[in-house]
């Protein structure tokens, strides 16, 4: 799947495009992990994601674990309400940093 990546200062902003389900999760995982290897501060933007299933949630959880293990920082930004509902239901709002905007992520990263 298409995953855009741009750098702003020392933050890498990763923007996956389209839907993340079982059929696209593998390439989503590869792209996200590739991005995580490039920067210690990563913001994943959900502005262009219109659908995510548990297959996508798994990738985000793996990414969160990887970042934590390397003392990096990761924030999830621009999340539509319907997608946030699934993250909250899964308890991910307690273990991952979900903030409204890139500015909030920058403030979080310090």
């Amino acid at each position: 799947m298409e995953v855009k990546a741009v750098t702003e200062g020392d933050i890498l902003i990763v923007t996956p495009v389209g839907r993340v389900d079982t059929s696209t999760a593998k390439s989503f995982e590869e792209e996200v992990m590739k991005a995580l290897a490039q920067a210690s501060k990563v913001a994943i933007s959900f502005s262009e994601i219109n659908y995510i299933s548990s297959a996508g949630l798994r990738v985000i959880l793996m990414a969160g674990k990887k970042v934590a293990s390397t003392q990096g920082k990761m924030a999830l930004i621009n999340m539509p309400e319907k997608i946030f509902a699934v993250f909250k239901m899964s308890g991910f709002d307690k273990i991952l940093k979900i903030v409204p905007t890139l500015e909030d992520a920058k403030a979080l990263f310090g």
Partner: peptide
């Protein structure tokens, strides 16, 4: 986050 198992979410959802 460290202890959270990857997987098992689909049917839960």
């Amino acid at each position: 986050l460290d202890d959270r198992k990857i997987g098992g979410l689909g049917i839960f959802l």
